[in-house]
């Protein structure tokens, strides 16, 4: 069984936020409004967070794309009373099944990465914007939790295609929307257990680290540090 994971190269990333927008377009994430944004109710499965360091003229700003880490030991799954969120054995994706969600928001509290979002409002797409919604993904109703799914609808499509061509799924068949759009090619995605995959090689780079490693959640999203490195196996 594959175990999908992601590696984000922070040295390549330029903080452009194409991933953030691609994610919204792909997953029918509603845009917010000035009022909702002030209340912190903007939904962003993928967002680029800035970190400021130092003072003028030696200041640094770092940009970090943040999304669901798809933990191997996910606190949100343990706490969910209705199994609306679960760890998929087939893919390693932490998935969210909206009709099962009762909107208790325990998972949003349990998540150490704060990447679970509650639908405080009914999504509003004025005509004719509805025509542009992605029909591969549902529009979530009010009062359910949603989050990054590693574009799980795309794994279904990729499998359908591979099966149709009577072959096994290969590295690169299944791409997430954020990976596909990234102009800097900073995002690599694939099966961490496949020794041939690029994502597996990169995740073992000496540049690699994970968010909140000490929490014991075993995230499947790896980051590569910025700076002058020359790692042979990344070539």
């Amino acid at each position: 069984m594959p175990r999908y994971g992601m590696v984000i190269d922070l040295d390549r990333c330029t903080g452009c936020q194409a991933c953030a927008v691609a994610c919204k377009v792909e997953n029918n994430v509603p845009f917010s409004s000035p009022e909702l944004a002030l209340e912190g109710r903007t939904i962003a499965w993928m967002q680029v967070l800035p970190f400021y360091e130092g003072e003028f003229p030696e200041a640094r700003t770092r940009f970090m794309p943040a999304l669901c880490n798809h933990c191997e030991i996910p606190p949100c799954v343990t706490i969910c009373p209705t199994s609306a969120t679960y760890l998929s054995e087939e893919t390693g994706i932490v998935a969210q099944i909206y009709p099962r969600c009762i909107g208790c928001r325990y998972c949003a509290v349990a998540c150490p990465y704060t990447v679970k979002f509650f639908n405080w409002f009914k999504p509003k797409w004025p005509e004719p914007m509805v025509a542009g919604l992605n029909p591969d993904v549902s529009v979530r109703p009010k009062s359910v939790i949603e989050k990054c799914t590693f574009c799980s609808h795309r794994v279904v499509k990729a499998r359908e295609r591979a099966d149709g061509e009577k072959r096994k799924l290969k590295d690169g068949d299944y791409q997430t929307a954020c990976q596909e759009v990234c102009p800097a090619k900073a995002i690599t995605f694939g099966d961490l257990d496949d020794p041939e995959s690029r994502v597996a090689a990169l995740s073992k780079s000496p540049r690699a680290f994970r968010f909140g490693e000490d929490l014991g959640t075993e995230p499947k999203v790896y980051y590569l540090r910025e700076g002058e490195w020359d790692v042979e196996r990344e070539r």
Partner: peptide
């Protein structure tokens, strides 16, 4: 194959009500 956030959001230019 890459795009910037503008290109990615391009349909909002088409579907602007």
């Amino acid at each position: 194959g890459g795009l910037c956030p503008k290109g990615e959001a391009g349909l909002q230019a088409l579907y602007d009500p």
